[in-house]
Simulated assay, not measured.
Amino acid sequence: MREYYITKNDSGQRLNKFLEKAVPLLPGGIMHKYLRLKRIKVNGKRTDAAYRLAEGDAVQLYLNDEYFDAPREEEAFRRITQPRLRIVYEDDHILLADKAPGMVVHADERGGADTLIAHIQAYLYQTGAWNPADAASFAPALCNRIDRNTGGIVIAAKTAEALRILNDKIKERELEKRYLCIVHGRPQPAAGLIENYLRRDEKRKQVTLHRQRVPGAKTARTRYRTLASQDKLSLVECELLTGRTHQIRAHMASIGCPLLGDGKYGTNELNRPYNETGQALYAYSLTFRFEEDAGVLSYLNGRTFTAKEIPFVRKYFPSFQL
């Protein structure tokens, strides 16, 4: 028999959702069967899958060991002895990390532990801010993602409550995200709004833009303004009004100004003189603009956080001040 004591992070969720995370190898059909047979109990009593767990509850599982054999996903953090993190901000509920270009946020098809989330979990574990033994179904998690070759601010939730709130706020677009990029040429006009439809091609891992709505396409809107120009390059700030895959890269290329180093939407001919192999794109600014109550995160409303160091700005526009 295994027993889990429900902490604040695990409370408030349905029993079946808790079990899906705590015992991922347990099939749903068997879970419901074992609930009926009282091989899964809460506080020593029979209960149903819809029961809302409360802090202090005890969940007893009379299950075979085979259902617990798989390692939990977050165990990758244990292989990291020296976390590599650039922390922009941290409190009891969230951590804002400045992800370096080249690092993946989650494990990709190649697997491995060298991911942003693993380094964040390792840092929180080693500093005592998080102990996986204290919450059977929750681990610190990322609320947004950034492409491997894009740098910038990524939000990590340190508590289940913060994760629920931020996921909702991101869905309602109550977070303002601004990016800096270097593009070839000079955008005309110098500032504007790009609005069309974007469709993702899963096989090519690329998107196409359309003036009219086509099957599978979603609205894509980017506001941009040119901050500086010199020689054949321009420094541009982009604000995402929608959050589609490769949106800024495709949008800037569509007005004849592909990102420096972008081989997917730009051309090798343009990039070759600069010897850049990754797109010059950085999620440098994040502002919380809550329109509705944000519960324990209300204190963040109206606050802006920015990345301190953006390598390609220093390299190509050294006199520009953010």
Rank of each mutant, 00 (worst) to 15 (best):
R223H: 12
D134Y: 11
R164E: 15
G152M: 05
F288N: 04
A156Q: 00
Y284C: 05
R79V: 03
A280S: 11
E73W: 06
I117Y: 04
Y51N: 10
Y224M: 09
L270F: 07
V105Y: 00
E292G: 15
Y51R: 14
R173A: 14
P101E: 04
F317Y: 05
Y4I: 13
T306N: 07
I310H: 03
K315G: 04
N131V: 07
R86H: 13
A139M: 07
N9T: 04
V59M: 11
D65V: 03
L35M: 05
T7R: 12
Q247G: 07
G185V: 01
E292F: 13
Y67M: 03
M103F: 12
R86T: 14
I30A: 10
K41W: 08
K205F: 12
L241V: 15
Q206W: 11
K169P: 09
E195R: 14
S234R: 10
L35A: 00
N271H: 09
Y197N: 07
V183F: 10
F68V: 01
T277N: 13
E172W: 15
V23G: 12
G151R: 01
A129Q: 14
Q212A: 15
L286F: 09
R199V: 11
A294V: 14
I255C: 05
I146C: 06
K218L: 07
K33L: 00
M252Q: 08
F18W: 03
G278Y: 14
I146F: 09
T226F: 02
Q126H: 13
V183K: 03
A157R: 00
Y197H: 13
R84W: 02
F320H: 09
S229A: 11
L142G: 03
P318H: 07
Y265E: 09
S298Y: 04
P273A: 04
L166I: 13
G28D: 03
R314S: 13
A307R: 04
A129S: 09
A76M: 10
I194R: 11
E74C: 00
A118Q: 06
N196L: 15
E309R: 15
R2Y: 04
L235I: 01
D262P: 14
V42D: 08
F305G: 00
D147S: 07
Y299T: 07
V296R: 14
P101Q: 05
G261I: 03
L19H: 02
Q247K: 04
L26G: 02
N9E: 12
K21T: 10
K308R: 13
A136I: 07
F68Q: 00
V104F: 08
R204E: 15
P258T: 08
L15N: 06
L35V: 04
L37Y: 12
I153R: 06
K203E: 14
I153W: 02
G111D: 01
L116R: 06
A136E: 03
C238T: 09
